[in-house]
Amino acid sequence: MTVVAASGLTKRYRDVTALDDVSFTLEENAIYGLLGRNGAGKTTLMQLITGQTGATSGSLELFGEHPYENERALMKVVFIKESQKYPTAYKVKHVLSLARHLFPNWDEDFAQSLVDDFNLPRKRDVRKLSRGMTSALGVTIGLAARAPLTFFDEPYLGLDAVARQLFYDRLLADYAEHPRTVVLSTHLIDEVADLIEQVLLLDRGKLVLDADTDELRGEVMDATGPAEAIDEFATGRQVLHREQLGGVVRVTLRGSFDNAERMRAKKLSIDLQPVSLQQAVVRLTMERKTDR
């Protein structure tokens, strides 16, 4: 089932085009990585899907309906963002008790166990929480809400490595028991590389990549070898990056690398190495920059 369907989605603020003709779908029961540099349009996209703001043009469906002011559709969504503001009068327990009433699939036991795991002080004013504690509260809500569509917009700010690992572990374990659609917007690509099944890459408002993570990994490779051999091997492939040291050249290539191709590389004395997801994303983003 399609959870989100966007077509030609565009959002303009006065002279800035935050999203430019973006089309994609999010399917149910999958973990997506929404990647891109600062200002690429990730948050804008999530704000549009969650009805926080309206699109300039294009069509957008959330559970088959228009999201803006649509209670039925929005009740199936939780959007945890780093910038979430809380009223000054609220304590941690107030936020949790409100969330319990607002999200239909809320699991109170799960929420309480997360509060304990993250050492969240229940009686402290939310505004007095540290950066990391505030993030932990967001993560707790986002996980315990068990919404059919869950957005995490850089939810880890201020969280230490242990707490981040806790978040990833709990997310994966709960996802296995209660499959749903999760969208992780993050800069720490390597940390979530094993989590995300599908990559959406935004660059300056455009969707430049919508690919299966494993396929993408197989498509992007570093090739190192003699300059002539590399040039021959690179023919017919997209060169994302090239650096030369004396007679040795290293290129990042995008294309298909089946067994025959690997054999051929070996014969040409070319060393083929898969690149990390983060490296692939960086190369794909930078390659676009040199395009212009």
Partner: peptide, 13 residues
């Protein structure tokens, strides 16, 4: 104060 929080929790205006 409460409106931005409510919107963030998926409540309609």
């Amino acid at each position: 104060q409460v409106f931005p929080f409510a919107l963030g929790m998926g409540v309609t205006r």
